[in-house]
């Protein structure tokens, strides 16, 4: 007897408009001078992709030039809910917004994907790609590992810490609640500035505390060192759940 395939689930909604609550949330987290919020046409694209995302499917989604690309969670009638609720606050142009669950974002090389899309849309000059990609990668890795999966940096510092870290990683990736948490990546740019916000739904951290890389042998803490060295500005808001990277172009 043939196994019954699981029902396809809607994966992705792409819109040229943003729900009002998301706009206010983003505006609050991402308040940077020099960006206008022009009106945006009423038309929007709504596409449902089936099955789990991979890089090719997300690139296919991006090719339709949406402002917003959102992975839907498991279960429920989210497409209908989104259609009802997302009543059309203007998108930020130029810019785009990608929202993925942690389970999908892990191992997807999101920074590569986002930088490819930034370059395709003219927001990332060739010569800046390498530094932007590393900073964005570090922000996303922090959001996934320390934010949504809730694994403390200190886990690596203990004796045999890397084994503990690996075990915690496997445990949390098997926790449905943890892998449903979202990673939101919001990109905006102008001729002079590129800014990328990475937002997670984890417990946050004390961003005022000094970053501990005093010991050169420390096995963690270098992500912020890279970001601070290579980006023009790094701002952490929302109790440590939002990292905004700014690059002067």
């Amino acid at each position: 007897m043939q196994p019954v395939p699981p029902p396809p689930r809607p994966f992705c909604v792409m819109r040229a408009s943003v729900p009002a609550d998301m706009t206010s949330r983003v505006a609050e987290r991402f308040a940077l001078p020099g960006f206008a919020l022009p009106g945006f046409g009423p038309a929007w694209t709504d596409a449902l992709l089936l099955e789990r995302a991979d890089q090719d499917r997300l690139r296919e989604a991006f090719d339709r030039n949406p402002f917003l690309t959102v992975e839907l969670g498991e279960g429920g009638d989210e497409p209908a809910a989104l259609r009802d609720d997302w009543s059309g606050a203007p998108a930020v142009e130029p810019g785009f917004y990608l929202s993925l669950t942690t389970g999908t974002a892990y191992g997807l090389q999101c920074a590569v994907l986002v930088c490819d899309e930034l370059a395709r849309r003219g927001g990332l000059p060739d010569g800046r790609r390498s530094n932007v990609e590393l900073c964005l990668h570090e922000a996303i890795a922090n959001a996934i590992v320390h934010g949504n999966l809730g694994i403390p940096s200190a886990a690596k510092s203990q004796p045999d810490g890397y084994r503990l870290f690996g075990r915690l990683l496997r445990e949390r990736l098997g926790d449905p609640a943890a892998i449903r948490r979202r990673i939101d990546i919001f990109c905006r740019w102008s001729a002079a500035v590129l800014a990328v916000a990475v937002v997670d739904q984890g417990g946050g951290f004390d961003s005022a505390a000094p970053v501990a890389v005093a010991d050169g042998k420390a096995q963690s803490g270098r992500g912020f060192l890279f970001m601070r060295a290579l980006a023009s500005g790094v701002t952490v808001t929302d109790g440590g759940r939002c990292t905004v990277l700014r690059f002067d172009l």
């Binding site: 590393l134 890795a141 690596k156 042998k217 096995q219 963690s220 270098r222 992500g223 890279f226």
Partner: peptide
């Protein structure tokens, strides 16, 4: 082609 801060941490673990 690419190494991140976690990858550098892995090199340090190998050193230890």
């Amino acid at each position: 082609e690419f190494i991140d801060s976690a990858g550098l941490g892995m090199l340090l673990i190998l050193q230890e």
